[in-house]
Design a protein around this nucleic acid. Structure first.
Length: 638
DNA sequence: GCAAGGTC
């Protein structure tokens, strides 16, 4: 009824990224002629077709943005570091500007909207997507044809879909975009900007001034990068403060049969007192036989991996290829845009229903030799062993990362090829059977002491055949009551080993667990703390904090530990989420969080002199002709 | 020179 007086409906539809626009258009235009062209920016697709909309004939135009249309920043005047003091950034104006000026996204959207009288928003089903909805609305509002009712919002709809199989359903039950969800994103963006930039500028000024060193690089603070750095520093402190401790392990060698000697360990585990250890040894050393008490067999299943999502890809790239998350994502994006792998940013670990598993196996065959270490394995073996994948989690974003087309090693660089092969290997692993072993545990008594020995036999190597050469151990033929000749009793002295520095992969895990950053932003945060010289990547992708990185975290811990706490990010997010759930309003949340951080800022800047000593060795270019200056907060005249 | 979040 809304469009009863309208002659022709022209429906503009907008997705979050080009790939989604094309996939949705393909589904909705099913069976009809689909016209394709590029929008004026050369980046965004425009798909056009004709069909019915709300019972009327309509021309559809499906295009996309490329993520956020707008970004938030300070006005020009405040972008100049010297014109205003950092504290002013807590309440100065902020303004939105185009996120990527080269894309001319707003102009592009307005051009496409010109002859349209209906807008359907197909942005991703998350809070950022809801926010982009309103960025698109602002971009097309004035360009679109006047609606019949005169009320623009009447002709704006939101399609809510969490996977491609929901597209048709979503089209049939369009809803309205959720302004509160969008507002909560606006709030988070503004808080991150004001807080992050204020602290970053203050810190940078403070050290430049105190050490009279104009070459002091940016000393940044951020709600994601700083807790990420803190993870590295905390682990490094454990490495530093580690003192090896002695402990003793009691074990024995038993003559299992005429040719075989086996080793059994005391069930006590490590003994921390040498006297006690010797006392126990003395009690048993005169025994000549051990008695078998119990023989147990147990089946163990080593599960294959779940379908590949982004963070798992990042971790594997770091541990297996030795490349950083940022490099891994660049390579993956490149493979994706060239059509070799599916969309590489996803949290989902569940394959779609009716997924064509065999199709992939067919085109990857030429790569198999490179992929698995077991060179006798054939594609037929894999097909024959096919096992339905493990149940994963569908986050409603994109399907897991899989190869989509054969990649000739000749047409790419070495790292991209390794990355592609790694994705293949992971894929094949997910559709192979799990690895089943049988562990035999034998318990012995020697005097009052209990010992244990274990053997492991492979029942089915399953997916591990792709990468491991596990040898099956021979099971021992014992039964309860058997007397076994003792060949030797040993007391082995050992030292506890030092913990090691946090690896890149461990950092990714910790960040994900504490919701610090997202799958798409975690690589950037890690790159930041490396490039700003807070941590160095050493062999084995270990993240070793520098003097500067350690000093920074130490400084927060002395002045305001909350600033570097891993829980801080989630707490701020919980607060802005209240806006989305209509449990608090925008100004209330913004004011309360800003007040909290303004107080932290005041107290931090007020006490900054007290932490200077931590940074004495951090800036090698400092001017030694001057005594360290008594740093003040930068004044207007500085 | 700055944050974090989308994506190209």
């Amino acid at each position: 009824a809304m469009f009863s007086g309208v002659n022709s409906l022209n429906v503009l539809m907008v997705a979050e990224k080009p790939i989604m626009a094309n996939q949705i258009a393909k589904i909705l235009s099913k069976g009809r002629k689909l016209n394709f062209r590029k929008a004026s920016n050369g980046a965004c697709p425009v798909n056009e077709w004709s069909a019915n909309f709300m019972g009327k004939a309509a021309n559809f135009k499906m295009t996309s943005v490329c993520g956020h249309v707008m970004t938030l920043d300070f006005p020009q005047e405040y972008r100049d570091w010297r014109r205003h003091q950092p504290i002013e950034l807590f309440n100065c104006p902020v303004e939105k500007s185009e996120a990527n000026p080269q894309l001319k996204m707003r102009k592009c959207l307005a051009t496409e909207a010109k002859d349209c009288n209906v807008l359907v928003l197909w942005l991703d089903c998350d809070m950022e997507g809801e926010n982009i909805c309103f960025e698109v609305i602002e971009a097309v509002r004035n360009a679109m044809k006047k609606s019949q009712t005169g009320n623009f919002t009447d002709v704006v709809f939101r399609a809510r879909f969490s996977s491609l199989k929901d597209v048709e359903t979503a089209m049939n039950c369009l809803i309205k975009p959720n302004f509160k969800q969008s507002l909560s994103v606006d709030c988070r963006r503004e808080l991150d900007l004001r807080i992050g930039v204020a602290f970053s500028r203050f810190q940078t000024f403070h050290f430049r001034r105190y050490f009279r060193d104009k070459d002091v690089k940016l000393i940044s603070y951020g709600p994601c990068q700083t807790p990420a750095l803190a993870f590295c520093v905390n682990r490094a402190e454990k490495v530093d403060s580690f003192k090896p401790e002695n402990y003793w392990v009691l074990s024995c060698e038993l003559q299992a049969n005429s040719e075989k000697v086996i080793k059994a360990d005391s069930l006590r585990g490590p003994i921390h007192n040498e006297e006690e250890a010797n006392m126990i040894l003395n009690k048993i050393k005169d025994n000549t036989y051990a008695e078998v008490i119990e023989v147990n067999g147990q089946r163990n299943t080593k599960e294959r991996p779940k379908a590949l999502n982004t963070v798992e890809l990042l971790k594997i790239c770091s541990t297996k290829l030795g490349i950083s998350p940022a490099d891994a994502m660049h390579k993956a994006e490149n493979l994706y845009t060239r059509g070799y792998i599916s969309y590489p940013r996803t949290e989902t670990t569940e394959y779609p229903e009716e997924f064509d598993y065999m199709h992939i196996l067919k085109f990857i065959e030429p790569n198999l030799i490179a992929v698995w270490t077991n060179q006798t394995l054939t594609i037929e073996d894999v097909i024959q062993k096919f096992t339905s994948p493990r149940k994963g989690v569908d986050k409603g974003d994109h399907p897991p990362i899989v190869p989509t087309q054969w990649l000739s090693p000749k047409s790419t660089d070495e790292i991209s090829e390794s990355l592609y092969n790694l994705i293949i290997k992971h894929y094949v692993s997910t559709i192979m059977p799990p690895c089943i072993t049988e562990t035999q545990t034998i318990l012995f008594d020697i005097g009052e002491e209990r010992f244990q020995t274990q053997t492991s036999r492979i029942i089915d190597q399953g997916f591990t055949i792709l990468s491991e050469t596990i040898s099956s151990e021979e099971q021992l033929n014992f039964k309860a009551g058997d007397q076994v000749k003792i060949k030797k009793t040993n007391l082995i002295s050992r030292k506890t080993t030092s913990p090691s520095y946090l690896t890149e992969a461990e950092l990714v895990t910790k960040m994900e667990k504490h919701s610090i950053g997202t799958d798409a932003s975690i690589p950037t945060h890690i790159q930041n703390i490396c490039q700003r010289n807070y941590v160095k990547v050493e062999s084995g992708r270990k993240l070793v904090p520098t003097k500067l990185g350690r000093a920074l975290i130490k400084a927060y811990q002395e002045l305001d530990p909350e600033l570097a706490l891993p829980t801080m990010r989630a707490e701020v997010e919980a607060k802005v989420n209240l806006i989305a759930r209509n449990e608090a309003d925008y100004d209330q949340v913004k004011t309360s969080v800003l007040d909290t951080f303004r107080q932290k800022f005041d107290s931090f800047t007020g006490q900054a002199q007290a932490i200077n000593y931590l940074f004495t060795d951090c800036f090698p270019n400092r001017d030694f002709n001057h005594q360290p200056n008594h740093a003040r907060a930068p004044s207007k005249h500085f």
